[in-house]
Nucleic acid binder design. Structure first.
Length: 477
RNA sequence: GCUCCCGUAGUCUAGUCCGGUCAAGGAUCGGGGCCUUUCGAGCCUCAGACGCGGGUUCGAAUCCCGCCGGGAGCACCA
């Protein structure tokens, strides 16, 4: 196969122009690299079939441990926009609660569902023991009355839930009378305290996937049980038109643990600098490092629809990104941990020229002022001290604190970068640490968003430029 | 434990449905070389895989059975 984006397998019974897909982010924080598979796959298929992609915020009330975050709605959209995901409509689960109630009432009326007053602990124990509680067999009128009481606030949080009568003896414990609605007295960032009875994910999707005319649900393998639940609810309600379910395996990254709630906590505690801290692996942080959306896309889409659970090294993403930024990135010298070196016997030269990009001569040269006092990286200094090295694009010296000039001509010896005087640079690394040093003078005239390559260090995106210093974010080698 | 899913090189993936064109293709990683005033890029090259065992068949990565290994789910989260 030729290089280039791999073609995705076709979607089952997909008709060009008729496909409707949906994205279901839970707004607890910005999207991160681990969410990329879901949203990019949906976007790619929507485009391929000239269909519609709906952004449906999954903002049911969540839980104490996983609360909704008001600013997450915009953070999610910002990330999607950066990633080039095009959706045609934005919807909120929290606007659709009355529809969920309607469906619930149908199930309650037919006796397919019931209101249960058992507390969470009892419910769990009964489930384990495959034991039904008294409420399962109460009559419909009573159930309806209890439902009304839930809505009107006669029950407090935790005092009643709506459960679907699946089967208390189902071999899968998760499938034993699943909870459909619960009471939450928490404030919702969008609708405040308008509702106190909130649907669980699979019920809300059973309603919305049907009502919104979704044709294909693309979701991770971890959500297969939700298929079963949605299907069961459609069966109970006689819903004919249903989406097809398509799954993909779990995507993990080697040595990276992703968790929106953990990062949110760490940001609150000041242990991370913000939602675009590189340690969060949020889309915002990738942008900040100079990762191209197209690189992310091709990288993630290359996994296809495989049901394999995979663990991939981020280096593969870096390789994809390097291909894209290498041509554009101009080359500059950055000397981390500078060590001062004074060169004796230097001919009177004031400046040297070096190409901005070795493969694109048309881009011109950069001028670097030179003089007897230079700085080299501490690491290079200790490695080459006492040996002859070439200060790249300048001259050859015997390296020491008091170095001696050898010659000007290019020699086949180790070449290191150097700076006479320049601008303070600090480079933020992916692990959050910072590398401080000096950049050649031209670095001060770079603009925010420029992606450059610090020779022998790697690619970085310029994040902030001021008189005093330049801050850059390291992308990768 | 129960339910479901998956097993092609170090990693990811194509091929598996409809057995032969697969003495298994691509990417990445690794080795070597060329080129290059970067430890980057480019070019050439080498190495590396069908989890195991049976069966069906003229023929199996592809079909069947068993085993082994890995993963996910089992919340009044999503």
């Amino acid at each position: 196969m030729e290089a280039g984006p791999k073609e995705l397998p076709p979607l089952p019974s997909a008709v060009d122009g008729k496909v409707v897909l949906r994205l279901a982010p839970y707004p607890s924080g910005p999207l991160h690299i681990g969410n990329a598979r879901a949203f990019l796959l949906n976007d790619a298929y929507a485009k391929r079939y000239h269909g519609r992609l709906l952004l449906v915020f999954d903002d049911t009330i969540g839980s104490e441990e996983k609360p909704l975050l008001p600013e997450a709605f915009d953070q999610v959209r910002e990330g999607l926009e950066w990633a080039g995901v095009e959706f045609q409509e934005v919807l909120y689960k929290s606007d659709r609660i009355p529809l969920h109630y309607e469906w619930a009432e149908k199930l309650l009326a037919t006796g397919e569902a019931y209101v249960d007053e058992c507390d969470a602990e009892t419910l769990r124990k009964n489930r384990e023991a495959r034991k039904a509680c008294v409420h399962r067999t109460q009559d419909v009128d009573e159930t309806i009355a209890m439902w009304k009481a839930m809505l009107s606030g006669e029950y407090r949080e935790g005092e009643a839930v709506v459960r679907l009568k699946t089967d208390m003896a189902d071999p899968n414990p998760a499938f034993r009378d699943r909870v459909l609605f619960r009471i939450a007295e928490r404030e919702h960032p969008r609708v405040g305290s308008r509702y106190r009875v909130w649907p669980m994910l699979e019920f809300s999707w059973a309603v919305d996937d049907a009502l919104l005319g979704i044709t294909h649900v693309l979701r991770g393998k971890d959500l297969v049980m939700e298929d079963l639940m949605e299907t069961r609810i459609w069966d109970d309600l006689g819903i004919e038109r249903r989406p097809a379910f398509v799954h993909f395996g779990i995507l993990r990254f080697k040595d990276i643990e992703l968790s929106k709630s953990t990062y949110r906590k760490m940001i609150a505690e000041g242990r991370l600098t913000g939602i675009d801290d590189p340690r969060t692996w949020s889309l915002q942080s990738l942008r900040r490092r100079g990762i191209r959306p197209a690189a992310l896309r091709d990288f993630v889409l290359s996994f296809g629809l495989s049901l394999n659970d995979i663990e991939v090294p981020v280096e593969t993403l870096y390789a994809e990104n390097r291909r894209r930024i290498d041509k554009e990135a101009n080359r500059y010298f950055f000397v981390p941990d500078p060590v001062a070196v004074e060169i004796a016997g230097l001919p009177p030269i004031e400046r040297v020229k070096a190409p901005l990009h070795p493969e694109v001569p048309g881009r011109g040269d950069r001028e670097i002022p030179v003089g007897p006092k230079v700085h080299v990286a501490k690491e290079d200094f200790s490695k080459f001290r006492g040996k002859e090295v070439r200060l790249k694009d300048f001259c050859n010296v015997m390296l020491d604190h008091r170095a001696t000039f050898v010659s000007l001509e290019n020699k086949d010896i180790p070449k290191i970068q150097w700076v006479t005087h320049g601008v303070n640079v600090h480079l933020v690394l992916p692990d959050g640490s910072e590398s401080r040093g000096l950049g050649e003078p031209l670095v001060a005239s770079l603009k925010v968003d420029d992606v450059v390559q610090f020779e022998r260090i790697g690619f970085a995106r310029i994040d902030h430029v001021s008189k005093a210093e330049v801050r850059a974010f390291f992308a990768h080698r």
